[in-house]
């Protein structure tokens, strides 16, 4: 962190909500990738708060096409640049969890299968935030969203969070990693590694959303750390399929994490138990990926 450049390639003046986790990640990522980078965005919050034509927070070329096809467009741009003899340019797609886990997964899977030479970053705020908080495949069990409302029969999302990083590992790509804005050193190292490798690189970075999760804007980073501590988000990386766990979760009670967020306010002890059980299983599954 001490060595990061002061220059901001993602400037102040962007219009993210106060306390948004996403720009923390984007600022850091742009410092690592440097000016020799082009970015691609599907529809998401970052696209809207990072640029409203003709104003723009990115100091590098920036493209916006469609919600479904971040990975496709990034692939095409990279191939084009290679033909022009500019193969050294980093091509990065920044997509939300909705644009990754649900609507963009087909394009993502295709690009991964072809081992396109791009970096794909999913910032995971666990719902479709830009359009006003609808559930995505990445929304955790129990969370309130406008499409998983709290009623008498059903309270919050019934299903569990989709494990996209593991789906990506199954594609046998050079690099897959999970990171969190609450663990800067780990995140920066992974961004660096992603920058320096070739082929398809996938990063999923956990970035809390005070507006959608309903918590005090000062607690964004604290909650990101707590999610890792309680095992709801594991930090690991897979290089050519070989998995390393970067931080063993302390397995603190999920309840402590849940308690601080309005989106979980309605949860009964039973629901919290189910979420806890899921966290335990997740750790079993994640740690089992490591082959000694």
């Amino acid at each position: 962190m001490k060595d990061l450049p002061d220059e901001e390639l993602f400037t102040a003046g962007h219009t993210a909500c106060p306390g948004c986790g996403c720009p923390i990640m984007v600022r850091a990522a742009m410092k690592i990738f440097g000016p020799n980078t082009v970015c691609y965005f599907p529809a998401n919050c970052l696209l809207v708060f990072g640029a409203t034509y003709p104003q723009d927070a990115f100091k590098v070329p920036y493209l916006h096409v469609l919600f479904e096809n971040s990975a496709v467009c990034a692939s095409g741009i990279k191939r084009g640049l290679k033909k022009l003899g500019k193969g050294d340019v980093n091509v990065v797609a920044f997509a939300g969890d909705g644009g990754t886990a649900d609507i963009g997964i087909q394009a993502l899977s295709g690009a991964a299968e072809r081992n396109e030479d791009i970096i794909y970053i999913c910032y995971d705020n666990e719902a479709y935030m830009n359009t006003g908080i609808q559930r995505s495949g990445s929304t955790p069990h129990g969370a309130w969203t406008t499409t998983t409302p709290v009623g008498k029969k059903i309270a919050g999302k019934e299903l569990y969070k989709k494990d996209v990083p593991r789906i990506m590992i199954a594609h046998d790509v050079p690099y897959v990693a999970t990171a969190s804005i609450g663990h800067p050193a780990d995140m920066l190292r992974k961004l660096e590694k992603a920058r320096d490798l070739k082929g398809f690189r996938y990063l999923q970075i956990f970035a809390p959303c005070p507006t959608g999760w309903r918590f005090d804007t000062a607690k964004t980073v604290q909650l990101a750390k707590m999610a890792v501590d309680c095992g709801l988000w594991t930090l690991y990386e897979a290089e050519d399929g070989k998995v390393t766990i970067n931080k063993k979760p302390k397995m603190t009670p999920v309840k402590d994490y849940v308690k601080l967020q309005g989106r979980f306010r309605h949860m009964t002890d039973e629901q919290i138990d189910s979420l806890q059980e899921w966290a335990n299983k997740k750790w079993e599954r994640d740690s089992a990926m490591v082959i000694e």
Partner: peptide, 13 residues
């Protein structure tokens, strides 16, 4: 005012 890459710096939040 400013437009284009980096121009959001004009937007005082």
């Amino acid at each position: 005012g400013l437009v284009g890459p980096g121009s959001f710096i004009d937007n005082k939040t």
